[in-house]
């Protein structure tokens, strides 16, 4: 049975280094057959909007938009903090594939049974 794995990210394009590494680790988790979730909160929620990550390409890493797309294509899920998203008045109709806007209960439900997590 696959285990769970949560990557918590609070940085967006304001800290491309942190955002990139978070998705690299998330890709490792999903590639290791884990039920992987990236939890985007505070500034990171901007990354859930299509096109927002397009300009981020850290040296030595794949472009952020590719890392996000590969994560979703491999079966990973992106939880987007609902109040953080609303506060920034972002467009819920333009989410990247794999992203879903969730409240705290959804995150708690995913992690409550025991779930390793790494935070960026």
């Amino acid at each position: 049975m696959a285990g769970k794995f949560c990557v918590s990210l609070t940085a967006g394009t304001d800290d491309p280094d942190r955002a990139t590494v978070a998705f690299v680790v998330a890709n490792a988790a999903v590639a290791c057959d884990q039920e992987a979730v990236v939890f985007l909160s505070t500034e990171a929620v901007r990354l859930a909007v299509s096109g927002a990550a397009d300009a981020v390409a850290e040296e030595g890493f794949a472009p952020l938009k590719d890392l996000i797309a590969n994560f979703a294509a491999a079966g990973g899920t992106i939880f987007v903090c609902s109040p953080c998203f609303k506060k920034r008045q972002l467009d819920a109709a333009s989410l990247v594939p794999g992203a879903v806007i969730v409240g705290g209960a959804k995150l708690v439900e995913f992690m409550a049974g025991g779930c390793p997590s790494v935070s960026y």
Partner: peptide, 11 residues
């Protein structure tokens, strides 16, 4: 390496 290698291996 890292997550990119893991995902590429899987694919």
């Amino acid at each position: 390496g890292c997550g990119e290698l893991a995902l590429a291996l899987r694919m």
